[in-house]
Each structure stands twice: as structure tokens, then as C-alpha cells.
Write a protein that binds this DNA or RNA. Structure first.
Length: 668
DNA sequence: TCACGGAATATTTTT
DNA sequence: TATTCCGTGA
């Protein structure tokens, strides 16, 4: 404390007017210098602002930017904060190390992987890659043939990842979350160990491995650990409620002796427990770091009071939490409404009608969002919106990097760097006419036998059926030279080779060809192939496929459809939450376990606190869910029975009031 | 062995 | 909506 005072007294002149720009609690967090600190930041309480100012403050105090490490969950978040800090202060802030846990792990491991016995030339594989590897193994091991309902590869990847992230054996994950697969326990376990083995063989690191290996490195190599904790003398961690055990361990290991760790989060907004996040990390932090200063940010700068009142009521029933009550100085505003619609379609039509009248009041489409529990909940609404040609974006939908055609192109690049990459060879070979899994396997083996990198493919003797296709592939590989050719040049060659295949494979090839052009522009920014591929896995450009296709003007005014998960941290003038039907939200999957139900509750809280001015919570009055064979007809338990004073009730009949839909399309 | 078609299926997913 | 999976015929 004394030290801190002297610091502030010594240098009275600051470029930034901290006292003016921040409220009392924010200021307290920002000027804190030494020792651990936990900031409990309620929704809309200026969390990002606080982090940004603190980065600037540390730099202004004379701390070297390179010794500050800012860890976030998305690259975008880190970039954004550092950019803002630079605008506040000066360009020194750009030198702060910032990024995701995964990209940080990647950087460290590239340098030190060999210290713990790993191949430093590892390849980072993303989720779909991991899934296809699992899919291949499942087939090889004959598991799907033996049992009709053996889990799908996607499910398997989920199970494996969950086991890692929750630090649990696979067995327990199945027992807890997938009891219906317990009959296949043995098969799943042997598949899992095979998967781990193959990853090591191929030097594949999946996302989880990055964290595991980093932790292991820090645990086992004290020299590296000390070097790093010396280097990153100040750590700031965002969204701490969504960290898992591994991430918390990593922070502890890095904290060094001064423990200048600031973590920021909101336990009430923890919504990733299903994949291993442990919101108790936030509650345990002060125990882990004795002497932690705890600061609460409770003043909300986003929503009107009636919305906060509802949010506070919703979260009140959470069992384990840091208590905080959001308030705002903005006390006016309209009440949130619970809307009961006839059926799914009248729910959709209610939204459409409401959007129309909001449009008349001058609220543009990009200020409105429709939020839901699961991706497919918006299908009916999407149809309705398309009918009326109302432009919308669905976020959390298809990712640019995960599209088949993009992955096809990347596969060609990957085998150049890593000729053992079985996933990519399969992908490349299966594109060719008359080559199926069996043939692909044979060719792959033949390539490996030569042990001469990707040029092993030159010696493969093709059968007549696929000779033409394979010859084209060989020609392509002969043409390139990874040493002298630029990334973009190789990319160009791939495209030339791939275009005919693209036309064969996809009906919508013109659209996809455009995506590929875009990919080529991205490649042009890289001079290192390895770098490019890693970035594509770890920090893919955040464009959805449709985005590349839209004109600039239609981009600025589109309605947002989003899962609640993808809406975290965002805000809109008007928010609709649809399918607020008990059994859908909370999901019927979550009804059995208290923790699961609690997470659903927090999800509702997150959804509600996205709204600035208007909040509509909508549900169809009755809906038959064939999966559980039940009629759902009660509103979500999280909003049912809340008094009219907090939550107004409305009814919309079947069909809705639908008068002026013809001329609607002209309006946007 | 491969290609194709149709049916079944689906919680959420920053990396 | 869009994938994934399986059965069928060539």
C-alpha cells in the first residue's frame, strides 16, 4: 500500500485523466499496481474499459510493455483492448503481449516443446481436423460396424475434449453426461487411447494439447518457468469465469513471486461449464492468492433500470455466487415483456411484426438481435425473414475456416509442411474420382514408405481408374517449391489445380470460388507457411461465408440472429429471446442436474443483460417435442411467475397481426 | 470399392 | 439447415 501511494505521489503528471474517465471502483482497479486482484465485473459495467485503462496505466507508470501479458478468450478481444489502450496513451501499448491462452501456449511451445519431449515442429489441428482423425480411427477399428449406434465422431470429440477440460477420466464423462453410451465404454476408451497415440505419432497438437503441454512444460521445467514468470511480470486475465482448471494452473505457475495477477470476470455470466470451464475459479481465486484485493463493478452503463430489475430477479435464484446488484443512473425506460405466442410460426411472425414497427420508430436492423438457446431454434424465423427479404446475419453459424472448400485448399498446404499428415492426405486424395477410403489408405502408405516428403506421391503407381486425377495431383506438386516460392504463389497454384475439382464437387461453386480468392488475399500477407497454417487454426479470420458475398451497404443494416453463447459481451437496442419455453430453455437435457440448471439460469441472465432499451422474451404456447415425447407448454421457469411489475405479459394469437407485409421489403 | 441418394438427426462451442 | 450415416447398385 505504502509503495503504491508513493508511486502515485511521485508522478502526479499523467497523460490520461483517470479520475475523470472512470468511476470510483473502476479507478481503484486501474491504479492498483502490485499484488493479486480480482475484479468482479457485472454485465455492462465497463469491464473492457477497466482493463484497457489499466494497461495504459501500467505503461504510463513506466512498466515495460513487453512484461505485461493480457490473456483473453478471443484474439479479437485482445486486439481491441490493446488498440484502445494505444489510442488512450500511445503506441507503446501495442507492444504489450496479448492473445488467447491457446496462442500464448503455441508461442511458448514452438520454442520450448523439446524440453518436455515433444516435437517442436508440431502441427496445430482444429476441431474438424480432430473429428476427422477420430472418424478415421473409428472406421479402422471397426467400431461403427459392430454397433449400430456407436457415437458419432463429433460426439466422440466432445467427450474427449470434455475429459481433458474437466480433468476427468473419459469413463466419468460418459457416466455423467452420456450414460446412454455406457454400453460402448470400452470401445470409446480404446478409441481415445488410439487417438492420443496417433496425435503423438503425427505431431498433431489439438487445442486441448496446447494447454496441457504448456502446463506440463511449466510444471516440469523450472528454468523455463522462472524465465517466463520473470518476463511476464504483470498478468491480466479477462473472462476469468470461463477458465478451466488447466488455465488456472497455468496462471498460478506463471505468477512468480510477486503475483501481479489481475483477473476480471463475472461468475453470473459463466456459461461454458459444459466444456470444462469452472466458474469456481473466480470464487477460489482469493484462496489461491492470499491478499487478493477484490473489487466489484456494479454500476451498469448499458441497460435501462427495468431491464436490470428483471436481470437481478433472474439471477437472485442462483445458488452460489458473489452477490452483486446491478444498478444504473439511467432510471427511465420501458418494461421487459413476456410474450406468449400461439405456435412456433406466430412466434416468428411476432418478431417480424415488431421489427417492422421498430423500424418505423427509427430503430434500424443492426440495433436489434434475436437470441436463442441452440442454433436450430431460429430455423423457422430464418424462413420467415427470407420470405420478407429482411436481411440478417446468423452468428455462431458457419465458420469460414471450417467450410469444406477452404479446408480442401489448406490440406494441400499442410502436406507440404508435414507429409505425415494423414488427415490432409485423405482429404486431398478423396477429392479425386474413383479414390475412396480404401484406395486413399493405400496411397498414403505408399507415400510414407518412400519417406521422401510429399514427393513420395510421385512414385505412386495408380490404377487406371484414377490415373488421370492422380497425375494432375503429381503435376501440381512438381510445380511448387516450398523453399523459394511465396505462400501466395503456392496458394495460386493450388487454386489452379483445385478449381476444376471445386466445380465437380459443389453446385454453388461460384460462391465458393469467391471465398477462395479471399483466402488467397489472406495468404499474401504471410511470408511463412507454417505461420499461416497455425494462424488459420488458432486465429482464423472471423468472416462467415455469406459475409464475403454481401455488399457493403447491406452489411451495415442487418438483423442479428445469435445463440446466447455467441452474444456474450455484445449489446443491442432491442433484444428478443425466443423459445423461452420450459424444456427448450432450460433445455430438457439440463433438467436433471442442479449445476446444469444453474448454468441455464446464468444463460438467461446473460441473454437479458444484452438489451439496452427493449427486451422481449417470447415463447410458443404449446409445442410437441418429439425427442422427449412431451408437450411443452409452460414458459421458461426462469421467467415464469415474475410479477407484472417487473415483467409485463402479452399474448399474440396464432397467425399474429400481419397486415402490411407486402410493402415491408422496400423499407430496408 | 466407389458413388449416390435418401433418411435421420441435432444443446450450447471464444480455442 | 446442413451434415452425417447407411444401404444399394454398378
Amino acid at each position: 500500500m505504502a509503495e503504491q501511494l508513493s508511486l502515485t505521489n511521485d508522478r502526479k503528471e499523467y497523460q490520461i485523466a483517470y479520475e475523470q474517465d472512470l468511476n470510483a471502483s473502476q479507478l481503484e482497479a486501474v491504479i492498483h499496481t502490485k499484488g493479486p486482484m480480482l475484479v468482479i465485473a457485472g454485465a455492462g459495467s465497463g469491464k473492457t474499459r477497466t482493463l484497457t485503462y489499466r494497461v495504459a496505466r501500467l505503461v504510463e507508470e513506466g512498466i515495460s510493455p513487453a512484461s505485461i501479458l493480457l490473456l483473453t478468450f478471443t484474439r479479437k478481444a485482445a486486439d481491441e483492448m490493446l488498440k484502445r489502450a494505444s489510442e488512450l496513451l500511445d503506441r507503446r501499448c501495442e507492444k504489450v503481449s496479448g492473445g488467447t491462452f491457446h496462442s500464448f501456449a503455441h508461442t511458448i511451445l514452438r520454442e520450448h516443446a523439446s524440453h518436455v519431449g515433444y516435437n517442436p515442429r508440431f502441427v496445430v489441428i482444429d476441431r474438424p481436423d480432430a473429428e476427422s482423425l477420430i472418424g478415421m480411427l473409428r472406421k479402422e477399428m471397426g467400431l461403427s460396424a459392430a454397433h449400430r449406434s456407436f457415437p458419432r465422431k463429433k460426439t466422440l470429440a466432445n467427450i474427449f475434449s470434455k475429459a481433458i477440460n474437466k480433468t476427468m477420466p473419459v469413463e466419468d464423462v460418459i457416466f455423467d453426461d452420456y450414460p446412454h453410451f455406457s454400453a460402448y465404454l470400452e470401445g470409446i476408451q480404446s478409441l481415445h487411447s488410439e487417438y492420443s497415440k496417433r496425435k503423438v505419432q503425427h505431431a498433431f497438437f489439438d487445442f486441448d494439447d496446447l494447454l496441457i503441454y504448456l502446463r506440463r512444460l511449466l510444471q516440469e521445467d523450472s528454468e523455463v518457468r522462472e524465465k517466463l514468470s520473470e518476463k511476464y511480470h504483470y498478468m491480466l486475465v479477462d473472462e476469468y469465469q470461463d477458465t478451466n482448471q488447466m488455465q488456472s494452473d497455468i496462471i498460478c505457475l506463471l505468477a512468480g513471486k510477486d503475483k501481479n495477477v489481475m483477473v476480471v470476470g463475472d461468475d453470473s455470466q459463466s456459461i461454458y461449464a459444459f466444456r470444462g470451464a469452472n466458474f469456481k475459479n473466480i470464487i477460489n481465486f482469493p484462496e489461491l492468492f492470499p491478499g487478493t484485493r477484490i473489487i466489484r463493478l456494479e454500476e451498469n452503463y448499458r441497460s435501462v433500470q427495468p431491464i436490470l430489475d428483471l436481470a437481478n430477479v433472474i439471477i437472485e435464484s442462483a445458488r452460489e455466487k458473489y452477490t452483486k446488484t446491478l444498478f444504473t443512473k439511467n432510471s427511465s425506460g420501458t418494461q421487459p415483456v413476456l410474450v406468449s405466442a400461439g405456435d412456433e410460426n406466430s412466434q416468428s411472425r411476432f418478431i417480424v411484426d415488431k421489427i417492422r414497427s421498430l423500424g418505423n420508430q427509427g430503430v434500424s436492423l443492426d440495433e436489434i438481435a434475436v437470441l436463442f438457446r441452440a442454433g436450430f431454434h431460429s430455423f423457422d424465423l430464418e424462413i420467415e425473414l427470407s420470405k420478407l427479404t429482411i436481411p440478417f446475419v446468423k452468428v455462431g453459424g458457419f465458420k469460414f475456416m471450417e467450410a469444406a472448400h477452404i479446408k480442401d485448399v489448406l490440406a494441400h498446404l499442410r502436406v507440404i509442411l508435414n507429409p505425415y499428415d494423414r488427415i490432409s492426405w485423405y482429404r486431398i486424395l478423396l477429392l479425386l474420382e474413383k479414390i475412396g477410403p480404401t484406395t486413399a489408405e493405400r496411397i498414403y502408405e505408399a507415400i510414407q514408405e518412400k519417406n521422401s516428403g510429399y514427393s513420395g506421391v510421385f512414385d505412386v503407381q495408380p490404377k487406371k481408374a484414377f490415373a488421370a486425377g492422380l497425375d494432375r495431383l503429381k503435376d501440381f506438386f512438381r510445380k511448387i517449391d516450398p523453399i523459394t516460392h511465396s505462400v501466395a504463389r503456392i496458394g495460386g497454384d493450388i487454386l489452379e489445380y483445385y478449381r476444376p475439382l471445386l466445380k465437380e464437387k459443389f453446385d454453388d461453386h461460384p460462391k465458393r470460388a469467391k471465398d477462395l480468392e479471399q483466402l488467397l488475399t489472406i495468404m499474401a500477407r504471410y511470408d511463412n507457411l507454417e505461420r499461416f497454417l497455425t494462424d488459420m487454426a488458432l486465429e482464423p479470420p472471423n468472416v462467415s461465408i455469406e459475409d464475403t458475398f454481401l455488399t457493403e451497404q447491406s452489411k451495415d443494416s442487418r438483423l442479428t440472429l445469435s445463440t446466447i453463447h455467441s452474444a456474450k459481451g455484445l449489446e443491442w437496442h432491442t433484444v428478443f429471446i425466443i423459445w423461452a419455453l420450459d424444456g427448450r430453455f432450460p433445455s430438457s437435457h439440463a433438467l436433471e442436474k442442479t449445476e446444469d440448471l444453474e448454468e441455464e439460469l446464468r444463460l438467461m441472465y446473460v441473454a437479458a443483460t444484452r438489451a439496452k432499451e427493449n427486451l422481449f422474451i417470447v415463447y410458443p404456447m404449446s409445442f410437441y417435442d418429439r425427442n422427449i415425447g412431451m408437450m411443452l407448454n409452460r414458459p421458461s421457469r426462469f421467467v415464469d411467475g415474475i410479477s407484472e411489475q417487473i415483467l409485463e405479459k402479452q399474448f399474440v394469437g396464432r397467425g399474429g397481426a400481419h397486415l402490411f407485409m407486402d410493402d415491408f421489403s422496400d423499407r430496408y
